[in-house]
C-alpha cells in the first residue's frame, strides 16, 4: 500500500479554484517532484497536505488513515513534516533548541515531571539531547549548536530547517523550494544532500522546486501542475519531452 494517496483533491478560494482534481501516490522511500510555473498551486497542495488549508474536495490517505480535516500539528504527529519556502526558523532560539523543540512531538513528560524534575524528566531530556546531538553531527552543525538560529549563514539555515523537520521523525518529508536563493554550486550540493537524507533516514520525500536541473536530476517521478491542474506526470525523461510541459514553461512555437 502506498504511504500517501491523494484522490481528487481540490480547494476553492471564493470563486477561484486554486487546485482542482489533484491526485498523487507516494510509496515508501520514494523521491517525488512537484513542479510548475509560479502560481500553479504547488504550495497550496503542500498546505492542504499539512492541514494549513482544509481542502474543499477530495481525500488524503496517509499511512493507512485519512488525514483530511486534521490540524497541522496533528498531521505532524502522524509522521509527516515540512519545510518552508521562506525559511521559518525560531530565530531567537539556539540551533540546538530549534531541533529539540521538534523532539518533544515524540517524547514528552507531564508538567508535574517538569516542575519536580522526576526521573522521567531527566530520562526524556537526555534522550532528546542525544537525538539533537546526532542530528547536529549529521548536518555538520555541531560547532554551531549554541548560536542563535538567525546568526547562521543562509545555507546552514536551510539545513537546520530540514534537521528540525527530521527531528519530528517523519515518514514523509515535504520540502518547499529548498534551493531558493542558492547558487548553482550550492544547488548541486543540495541535490546530493537530499538524496542522502532519503537513503539515510529511509523516508519518502516530496519536493517542490523551480530549479529544473535539481528536480530532473534526483526525482524518480515528477508531477507537473499548471493553473491548479495536473498537466503531466511521469519519469523525468517523459516530462522533459512532454509538449504540454514545454508550453507551460516557455510558451508555444508560432
Amino acid at each position: 500500500m502506498a504511504l500517501l494517496e491523494v484522490k481528487d483533491l481540490g480547494i476553492q478560494f471564493g470563486g477561484l479554484k486554486a487546485v482542482d482534481g489533484f491526485h498523487m501516490e507516494i510509496g515508501d522511500n520514494e523521491l517525488i517532484g512537484l513542479i510548475g510555473p509560479n502560481g500553479a498551486g504547488k504550495t497550496t497542495v503542500f498546505n492542504m497536505l499539512t492541514g494549513v488549508y482544509q481542502p474543499t474536495d477530495g481525500e488524503i490517505l496517509f499511512d493507512g488513515s485519512s488525514i483530511s480535516g486534521l490540524t497541522t500539528y496533528e498531521v505532524t504527529k502522524k509522521h509527516m513534516a515540512r519545510t518552508f519556502q521562506n525559511i521559518r526558523l525560531y530565530k531567537e532560539m539556539s540551533v540546538s533548541d530549534n531541533i529539540k523543540t521538534s523532539c518533544s512531538v515524540r517524547r514528552k513528560y507531564s508538567l508535574i515531571d517538569a516542575i519536580f524534575h522526576t526521573g522521567k524528566y531527566y530520562k526524556v531530556e537526555q534522550e532528546n539531547e542525544e537525538q539533537v546531538q546526532k542530528l547536529l553531527k549529521m548536518f555538520g552543525l555541531e560547532d554551531k549548536a549554541d548560536l542563535l538560529a538567525k546568526n547562521l549563514p543562509y545555507g546552514d539555515q536551510r539545513r537546520l530547517e530540514i534537521a528540525r523537520a527530521l527531528a519530528t521523525e517523519p515518514k514523509l518529508l515535504l520540502l518547499d523550494e529548498p534551493a531558493a536563493g542558492m547558487n548553482p554550486q550550492e544547488t548541486e550540493d543540495l541535490a546530493v544532500f537530499i538524496k542522502w537524507i532519503k537513503d539515510e533516514f529511509k523516508i519518502s520525500i516530496l519536493l517542490i522546486e523551480h530549479d529544473m536541473k535539481l528536480v530532473m536530476g534526483i526525482c524518480e517521478k515528477i508531477t507537473v501542475l499548471n493553473f491548479g491542474k495536473i498537466i503531466a506526470e511521469g519519469t523525468p525523461k517523459e516530462i522533459q519531452n512532454n509538449p504540454q510541459v514545454i508550453e507551460a514553461y516557455i510558451g508555444r512555437k508560432k
Binding site: T72, Y73, E92, T101, S102, V105
Partner: peptide, 18 residues
Amino acid sequence: RDMRAVSQDEIAAEAMGV
C-alpha cells in the same frame, strides 16, 4: 520550549507538531 517556539513563529511551530 514550545512556548518560545510559538512566540517566534506560530506557523512553523504548528508544522513541527506544537
